[in-house]
Design a protein around this nucleic acid. Structure first.
Lengths: 181, 181
DNA sequence: GTCTATAGCCAGATAGAC
DNA sequence: GTCTATCTGGCTATAGAC
C-alpha cells in the first residue's frame, strides 16, 4: 500500500502551501518532512512551480467540466438549483477540497500563474451562466454570492459549535434562498 | 501640501503589498518607487513588519469600535439592518478600503501577525453579535454571509458592466435580504 | 532515485559617514 | 534624513558521485 514518492511530495506540498502559504514554504521544508534532501525533489519535479502546476491542472479540468455542463443548459431556476448542488458536491469531495482551500489562500501569491488565471476566469463565468441578459444587478450579485457562500461556509462558522454536517446543509439552504426568483 | 516621507512609505507599501502580496514585495521595490535607498526606510520603520503594523493598527481600532456598538444593542432585526449599513459605509471610506483589501489578500502571508489575529477574532464576533442564542444554523450562516457579501461585492462583479454605484446598492440589498427573518 | 556540495541570487537588516 | 557599503542568511536550482 506504499505510495510513490511523487504523490507524497504532492500531499506534503499541498498541506504546507495551504497552512503556511506558497512563498513561505521552502523546498527544504518539504524535503525534510519527506525525509529526503532538496535535491531529491528535483528528480520528481523540475521546479517549485511544477509542483503547483501538478496540483492545479486537476482543478482547472473540473471547473471546465462544470462550466460546460452549465452552458449546455437553459438559465432557469431549476438549472440554478442543480448547479448549486453540483458545485457543493464537488467542493465536498476530499480530494478536491484540499486543492480548493490551497487556491483560496494563495490567490495573491499565485496571481500570475497561467493556470490559476484560467481557473479564475472560468470561476467568474460560472455565476454569469446563471443569469440571463435580463437579470437585475441584485439578481447577479445574489447568484454570485450563492456559489461563493458554498466556499465561505466552512470558515464562516469556524468558531461556532455547529457540526460539519449542519454547516453543509445550512450553507446549501442559504445558497438556495439566494437563487430564488 | 507636501506629504512627509513616512506617509508616502505607507502609501506605496500598501499599494504594492495589495497588488503583489506582502512576501513578494521587497523593501528595495518600495525604496525605488520612493526614490530613495533601502537604508532610508530603516530610519522611518525599524522592520518590514513595522510598516504592516502601522497599517493594521488603525483597522483594529475601527473594528473594535463597531463591535462595541453592536454589543451595546439588542439583537433585533433593526439592529442587524443598522449594522449592515454601518459596515458598508465603513468599507466605502477610501482610507479604510485600501487597508481592507490589503488584509483580504494577505490573510495567509500574515496569518501569525498578532494584530491580524485580533482583527480576525473581532471579525468573527461581529456576525455572532447579530444572532441570539435561539438562532438556527441557517440564520447564523445568513448573517455571516450578509457581512461577507459586502466585501465580496467589489470583485464578484468585476467582469460585469455594472457601475460601482449599482454594485454598492445591489450588494446592500442582497445583504438586507439575507438578514430578513 | 537519492545523495553531497555549491553556485548564484536577493532578501532583510546594520554601521557609520555626511 | 539619507547615503554607501556590507553582513548574514535563506532561497531555488544545478552538477556530478553513488
Amino acid at each position: 500500500m506504499r505510495e510513490d514518492t511523487r504523490t507524497r511530495i504532492q500531499e506534503i506540498a499541498l498541506r504546507l502551501f495551504t497552512e503556511q502559504g506558497y512563498e513561505a514554504t521552502s523546498l527544504r521544508e518539504i524535503a525534510e518532512e519527506l525525509g529526503v534532501t532538496k535535491a531529491a525533489l528535483y528528480y520528481h519535479f523540475k521546479t517549485k512551480d511544477d509542483i503547483v502546476a501538478s496540483l492545479v491542472d486537476l482543478r482547472l479540468a473540473d471547473i471546465e467540466e462544470l462550466l460546460a455542463w452549465a452552458r449546455s443548459r437553459p438559465k432557469t431556476p431549476q438549472m440554478r438549483r442543480e448547479l448549486v448542488e453540483r458545485y457543493a458536491e464537488y467542493l465536498r469531495r476530499t480530494r478536491h477540497r484540499g486543492v480548493a482551500r490551497f487556491l483560496e489562500r494563495n490567490q495573491t501569491a499565485l496571481r500570475d500563474h497561467p493556470t490559476l488565471i484560467k481557473i479564475r476566469e472560468r470561476m467568474m463565468e460560472l455565476p454569469h451562466e446563471m443569469s440571463g441578459p435580463e437579470a437585475t444587478p441584485v439578481e447577479r450579485i445574489s447568484h454570485s454570492l450563492a456559489l461563493f457562500g458554498l466556499h465561505a461556509g466552512k470558515w464562516l462558522a469556524l468558531e461556532s459549535e455547529l457540526s460539519e454536517e449542519e454547516i453543509h446543509k445550512a450553507t446549501i439552504e442559504v445558497a438556495m434562498r439566494l437563487i430564488e426568483p
